[in-house]
Design a protein around this nucleic acid. Structure first.
Lengths: 355, 355
DNA sequence: CTGAAAGCGCTAACAG
DNA sequence: CTGTTAGCGCTTTCAG
């Protein structure tokens, strides 16, 4: 008997209580019920109470889809990131979710996987689902912005974070990549490094561009030459760090420091550096960007530039909510630049102190 | 002039092309257009072409909300996890997203933050948004299952992963926590450890329960006594590892190994162990569970039990899609148990080999 | 204070 | 092959 129970199918009922059901039982009109539920002043208190009591008892839940259909906009915020499985992005998403939840919004999440095609389809899905707004960090190979323009056409506000899109006028939340990179490189210089390589990301990605600019300016400011052989361009992933170091390794004159565009790239380079017989930091000092959880656990712990992904997410969604709720429907786009903090760890500690 | 342009508000248009618009321009009826777009065999080829051409040209996108409204179900899959910002969960989510994307579904993501109240509200949001199905790992303090029953009542299929809910008959995707834990503890025993502590998670969380069972059985199987003083119960986070070790530290007779319910707990314990003057693995060997990215970067690298979060996500969503698409609408719930793999690293290497 | 009518975009069923 | 009718659940007029 019991064994049989285990193999019974899952019961399915699909019952849905609507305002009409409530109305029927109360011998009221469904519009009256609707108003009562929304606390319309024109409805008698006693009626409201009866309605609400029944709604509670029958476990009535308003159909958000019907509402969205009527209003032509849902209470869903679309979030598109290059990768979900990524320390930085998942922390941003978490920040977004917390605030969105409090404000009564739902998250629609998708990843572009650094793929432009996929990003386009994700945007279409948001449009199609009448998203109230959209928070996006564009994919590595997004050059055209036409898919983002359709959001604009549909009146769906956009907030960019991390990787922005210069062709679209929209709110942005970024960290001060330029200054962060500048500080990191300056720190390397003050630690005594003179031949500082940079493992850069793709030029069309805003963060890579800004961090590279910070690197170059720091060199210039301290009177160091800019050696094109020390600027290795690649991607943003761990494997790109591996590749970058391999390219560099063949140099007749190796660098004495590496500034990586982000922590994953630094992490990828770590074993390569060690396996090539260099000690960190004595032969080559290494600095990253991002302060991934990992970086403090590396051997030696990685000097890096901390950004607060959580705060980025929270800030982005707050700005978006303001737009959605029309508080600043027609104001000019904001650009919020969050500060970074240089976290100095062993990977750049050469026991050298600039006078 | 240019400066002025920068301060112009963001333009907003909110135009929406519908089948009626297309119909009007083509002097057809909107239902005909609708059929043409869906490749209904009853529509003449030439008409279909004209319709599609215009749809393309006007950048028509069907309104998914209207569709969901009509069908009484959307193409959205709800995902509820305890924490988004978590290696394991974010990888599961990523796996889900990939498959869901290919199948034309959208993800609605929320986190319970280990909070039952919040989980309940998240479930209500899914119901309200006519989710097609739901994938969930229940929060740490979820005991009642009434909120999940309402999904059932609405005919929304559920798939549990990782942390299941015994009160609900639904598909489940889990790893073999019991065997994984057993293997890890057995490995510690074979490495020569005799006083093996376990930092357990909450008893009502299925994974904690199973891993604890594996621990106890491994001891029993190898004739080791079960010492209640060595079983420390706590939470699932890094801080819980810190706390657990502090409780343990006061023992007159310290353990020679620790098996942590998961990697974060092991990670939390690491510095505590070292600061208390114990060497890993010589004084205390440590094993975790989960194979977080971190674990291989720890010093010493952590022995752990690998599960494939990506695969868990993919499997969960595939089962869910089968239910949604009614292929097995009425079959008994499946329970998929994925294998684990013991990853042996330095943290348990005592240079000892059992004969 | 409550009811009636209309409509959002789409599709299913049926009629021409 | 194409058009007509009707309705999903909800809110917004406007009438009673």
């Amino acid at each position: 008997m019991k064994a049989k129970t285990r193999h019974q199918p899952i019961p399915t009922m699909k019952e849905q209580i609507t305002v009409k059901d409530l109305a029927a039982r109360l011998k009221l009109h469904h519009t009256t019920v609707s108003k009562a539920l929304r606390d319309d002043p024109k409805i008698r208190q006693s009626t409201k109470e009866k309605v609400r009591e029944l709604a509670e008892r029958l476990d009535y839940h308003p159909n958000s889809i019907a509402l969205a259909f009527k209003r032509k906009t849902s209470r869903t915020i679309g979030v598109i990131v290059p990768q979900i499985k990524n320390d930085f992005f998942s922390a941003v998403i978490s920040g977004i979710e917390n605030i969105a939840y409090d404000a009564g919004y739902t998250l629609s999440l998708s990843q572009s996987d650094e793929n432009h095609e996929r990003e386009v389809l994700n945007v279409h899905a948001l449009v199609s689902n009448l998203a109230a707004g959209c928070i996006i960090s564009v994919s590595q190979d997004t050059t055209s912005a036409s898919h983002l323009k359709i959001l604009r056409k549909r009146g769906i506000p956009i907030v960019f974070f991390d990787r922005t899109c210069p062709d679209i006028r929209a709110d942005q939340v970024v960290v001060d990549d330029y200054t962060g990179a500048f500080k990191a490189v300056e720190h390397l210089i003050l630690a005594g490094c003179r031949r500082i390589a940079h493992f850069a990301g793709p030029e069309n990605v805003s963060v890579s561009y800004e961090r590279c600019r910070g690197y170059l300016d720091a060199l210039k400011m301290h009177g160091l030459p800019e050696d094109p052989g020390l600027l290795i361009r690649g991607g943003l992933l761990e494997k790109d760090g591996v590749l970058a170091f391999r390219k560099l390794r063949n140099l007749w004159n190796p660098p004495d420091a590496i500034f990586a565009v982000n922590d994953p790239v630094a992490v990828g380079a770590y074993p390569e550096i060690k396996n090539a017989g260099f000690r960190i930091p004595h032969d080559i000092a290494v600095a990253g960007f991002g302060d991934t959880i990992l970086s403090s656990y590396l051997d030696p712990p990685l000097t890096t530039v901390r950004q607060s992904p959580n705060k980025i997410g929270e800030t982005a969604v707050k700005i978006l909510l303001k737009r959605i709720e029309g508080k600043n429907k027609n104001s000019a786009p904001e650009r919020i630049v969050l500060d970074t903090e240089l976290i100095v760890r062993k990977s750049t500690d050469r026991g050298f102190r600039a006078s």
